[in-house]
Design a protein around this nucleic acid. Structure first.
Length: 144
RNA sequence: CGAGCCGACCGGGCGGUCGCGUCGACGGGACACGUGCCCGUCGCCGAGGAACGUCCGGACUCCACAGGGCAGGGUGGUUGCUAACGGCAACCCGGGGUGACCCGCGGGACAGUGCCACAGAAAACAGACCGCCGGAGCGGGUGAUUCGGCCCUUCGGGGUGCGAAUCGGCCGGAUCCGGUAAGGGUGAAACGGUGGGGUAAGAGCCCACCAGCAUCCCGGGUGACCGGGAUGGCUUGGCAAACCCCACCCGGAGCAAGGCCAAGAAGGGCCUGUCGCCGUACCGGUGACGGGCCCGCGCAGGCGUUCGAGGGUUGCCCGCCCGAUGCCUGCGGGUAGGCCGCUGGAGCCUGUCGGCAACGGCAGGCCGAGAUGGAUGACCGCCGCCGGCGCCACCGGCAUCGGUGCGCGCCGGGCACAGAAUCCGGCGUACAGGUCGACUCGUCCG
RNA sequence: CGGGACGUGGCGCAGCUUGGUAGCGCACUUGACUGGGGGUCAAGGGGUCGUCGGUUCAAAUCCGGCCGUCCCGA
């Protein structure tokens, strides 16, 4: 399970990751990943420090935490099913945050098939999706 | 023992390893030092009977409010309970069931308006299509009487499927007038029902019994209503979940209510078109130039300040009130953060008293979630329940096979419906399985 | 979380107010015109009116309960 500091808490963060992040889809999951030094870090980080000066100064000394967010739409199922899927994904994401570079933000989105997927299946899909989101970083994205 | 009916309750249990959130304690850290923030450790607590649907009623918050009228909405047996209710309890009435019991939006159709398709004679002050009965004249058939013709004759007469006349004889037919409503393919529904008398034919026309209506009286009940009696005319459908009438109730919006703070003084947000670049088409990202929408702000114009612009009365009118760095119009142009509200309440449990009950009074005890991209979880072990397969045992059967089991083993992401979001009281809906209690009916035994 | 609309042939909609016959356009099938396609003309098929109850003689319509879809509110 993830602590509150390791989760995305703001709709602006979600919008930034989904719009400008890299997307990879594997199985019943879709992963949007945005690495901190990808592009334009000061545009978002500047507003963060202006908004919350205390945590901004703390972030300068410590390494920036990797943060994750989850999107489980109503198409997945009812409230009980959606809660179970999100809790499983949070637990799985906690074990995989160290694979990401510091300061990265990730949004994990569940497709309707995630309601019937087992815990091991969700873990395998998440591993594959994170690997796919990290892989083309050096080749494709740097050329811009 | 079997079947049923009603009510209350539970809604997997124990343990382990990692985690999450609020609160509290302790320790540490940073600083623009404010007992606020961050990190760590420990401890307590951490979804439901429906948290659901959002169908009602309140609390709470904001806006509005002298008052009256019209309009609008809701409820609908009675008496109680309650903060309130469209809820609940008891009773009444009607219907269903052998019964325990269940179901009912259950006021008014002699205040008015309207509707009742098709079929049917007729669908609502009644009327009269067929039929039945009486009468009138017309034509026909038939019968009787008289006369004539014809035939037979024992000349006394007799017969006749012939002709004419008469008939207030009979039969059926069409027309007209009158009586009647017993009967009439229909229809959801047909103007009380059965029997007798009566009549030209009939009819509550009269009588007996029954059903129902109205008025009055007596008795019981707080009341809805119930029981009994008398009189009356002899009976005059249904639909108000059609308009409507009557009685009672209702200001509007909703915690995304509302309040405070930070940032912000002119730019910002969203949608979209063209072009360039990136990218594997689609989708998309990014930059430039345009277009459109959205303000607590700015600009311009107009109106007005004891002769009042305009606004409020959240549907309208009368009336009333407010009203001056104010109001209206046009153009340029908006809200993404944090805190409070935020959880101790018409609260829960136990006992006792009042009440048939719903419920209420008193005494003692208890604290049982407060998230905000949204905590209450993930993975295991054992037990319980369920399903499937195999083995074993027993029963039925010639056999294939079928049934039973507090029996054994294996398999199973099996174990319901479903997750707080301001909080309560209800209702409605979904739900595997289980526990307890009251009662009814049937069979057997005593 | 809180408000508010709507479910009718394959699709988009009328009909509901004032209850008795479900209709229109596109689409579909068949035939004719054409050498064929397209197009035009003619004929035809196809609807549990979202679902379950209730009122009524009778419900797409009136009244409730569910189910589903969509919209709005910082």
């Amino acid at each position: 399970m993830l602590a509150a500091a390791q989760r995305l808490r703001r709709s602006t963060d979600f919008a930034a990751v989904i719009r400008s992040g890299r997307r990879a889809s594997r199985g019943v999951l879709v992963v949007h990943l945005r690495v901190a030094d990808d592009h334009a870090p000061d545009a978002h980080g500047g507003t963060t420090t202006a908004r919350e000066p205390v945590s901004g100064t703390g972030a300068e000394q410590k390494p920036a935490p990797v943060r994750a967010g989850f999107v489980v739409s109503k198409a997945v199922g009812g409230a009980v099913v959606r809660n179970r899927v999100r809790r499983r994904l949070r637990h799985l994401a906690r074990e995989r945050l160290d694979r990401l570079p510091p300061g990265a933000m990730i949004v994990i989105r569940a497709l309707p098939g995630a309601a019937e997927a087992s815990y091991a299946r969700l873990g395998a899909d998440l591993d594959a999706a994170i690997a796919a989101a990290l892989a083309p970083r050096k080749s494709g994205r740097r050329s811009r």
